[in-house]
Nucleic acid binder design. Sequence first.
DNA 1: TTGTATGCGTTATCAT
DNA 2: ATGATAACGCATACAA
Lengths: 363, 363
Amino acid sequence: MRTKQSAPALSLAEHKAAIQKENRRVTSYDVALVAGVSQSAVSRCFKPGASVSKATYARVMKAAAALDYIPNAAARSLITRRTNMVAVIISNLANLAYPEALSELSQHIGRRGKRVLLFTLQRETDIGAVLNDVWQYQVDGVIAAATLTDEQVAEFERRRMPLVVFNRGLRGQAVNTVACDHYEAGHMLVAKLATAGHRIIAIIDGPEDNIVGSERRRGAADKLAELGLPPPVIVRGHFDYASGARGLRDIISRLGHVPDAVICGSDVMAIGCLDYARHELGLSVPAQLSVAGFDAVEPSNWLSYNLTTLRQPIQKMASAAAELLHNLIELGEGEVEKRMFASQFIEGATARLTTLPSVSLAA
Amino acid sequence: MRTKQSAPALSLAEHKAAIQKENRRVTSYDVALVAGVSQSAVSRCFKPGASVSKATYARVMKAAAALDYIPNAAARSLITRRTNMVAVIISNLANLAYPEALSELSQHIGRRGKRVLLFTLQRETDIGAVLNDVWQYQVDGVIAAATLTDEQVAEFERRRMPLVVFNRGLRGQAVNTVACDHYEAGHMLVAKLATAGHRIIAIIDGPEDNIVGSERRRGAADKLAELGLPPPVIVRGHFDYASGARGLRDIISRLGHVPDAVICGSDVMAIGCLDYARHELGLSVPAQLSVAGFDAVEPSNWLSYNLTTLRQPIQKMASAAAELLHNLIELGEGEVEKRMFASQFIEGATARLTTLPSVSLAA
DNA sequence: TTGTATGCGTTATCAT
DNA sequence: ATGATAACGCATACAA
């Protein structure tokens, strides 16, 4: 009889009743008492790879199950300095490309035993306000799909908080980045359009503070200049459907006529532009007007649109971001790493991509 | 001179260096030391509405800022029993209606001083696997946009974990719910279609285990039976675009001809169905075929579609869910509450909603 | 392998 | 208003 007599083991029922009455949580001490072992033994049973005998393990697990015991992650994190939480700061889930990114990030991060603590921003400039919360929660790392100021980046460094910036690669900042080369994408698109003989090319850009749109616009404008084509008419939108329609209207009014092609900062704007051209203006696309977008979001592939666009490899990017952050957390700071992905051109059917036969005949 | 001589105040620089060297975090003790007050005083300064003198507050805040001190939420939660985190369990962000819901939930929860800990599910039946994690993180409450078994609901009760089920109102379960009356929506849609003279109505349902689709289908089928119309041909899809096209094809092959109307379990399927009808089959919608969906997701409103559908008041639902959970957390369990919202019929232009003049003339 | 003792960083209680 | 002290629930160094 090796049962402790000094502290007679309470029956399971008594124990549960006591816990209930005192309105406290089930702790490892409770499990230890019921299982007749020490608290540290219980702790070890829940740590993978700890040294526990088969017998002890069995008794502890049985007691734990009986008591509905689950280790308290908050208490654990106090000691281990790991919360197993990763903050994801994301500006606008309405953006159609982001839900997929978030979903992928969540899966990849989950696979590494961590969870996503979500910080959504109404406007991208609100990021300062949420950073304080990020520090409080003691997350293990941060993935930010928003533009950070240099000062904010510096604070991450001061706090030694692992950071990966998603799709906002500021060239100048020494910060780990996973992004798509939006400048190059804009460049490529203009090259394709110019080759097909488009000369008057207009751009519907995103909001002023959005770097993704700006880079795409810069790439496009630079390529136009390089080719000696007229500088583009540029109007601004908010990446949404209505902005696409309004954008085309404004372009035409500024230009006095329909341009050869419109480059839209996002697929949703391209779709808005396309619908407006076809249904409101009665234009034939791409015969009278070429329209192209970016992102290759799902609707761009629908039969009614079949949009000419550039695909961001969102899944690969999410995977890379999760991996990069994981390394940062596990291995500590190394060299600053910037993983750039290229966009893939999707031909679609809303932009004319060969020179007009009539033109070559007439020439 | 009230400065403690026994423990000479370190200079700020010395202090920061010491912390850095020992590789530990900045704690309230550090702040206390620098500010020349007790640790409790520091703690109080970070608790809104605590009684601290103006002078102490100022000195503490100055020291805290100098040291980059932020209270540790994990340590706090150990004693307050509040983590200020709410778990959101969501099945599939690709579903187009969910990103908006998540975004709204995040905003509303954030406004109440809490953050969303995200649990994404590949399949809705994976929920069992994530629940263990949910317990570990000691979240203050859970919003689940997934179907729970009775056993799982029971575990929430046992653990006294506040739970709000989002858009999955199982009629039988005694669980707090915010949902849309999908049965009623299906009912209403058939009523509209039948009034316009449609008789052969087919349904593209969602996956078997999805209750939202099932309810819509049940409502529609029941109304058909009620009106003495032929029972619907029913095929299954996965709520995605391809399922809509495939669904229509299967319906026609099962029926031997084009039905009068197709009811699709989601807008995205309806759009797939619509595109297939128009672009592949060359059917005129709604002249030769009526198509309707559910949810009123953004693309349903685009000019190319202008879909006949039923809008879920997602924003109101998200707001209600956040509020309901908040009350549960603050006030403790009360009566089980089920907040049902009605769908709003969006007329659109893909379903004929008046009887055909030719028919009434011929009759 | 197991148990003892200690500390993680905070809030809360109780004196003063 | 302020300070000492005891939890909160766990992991870990160390002794056995």
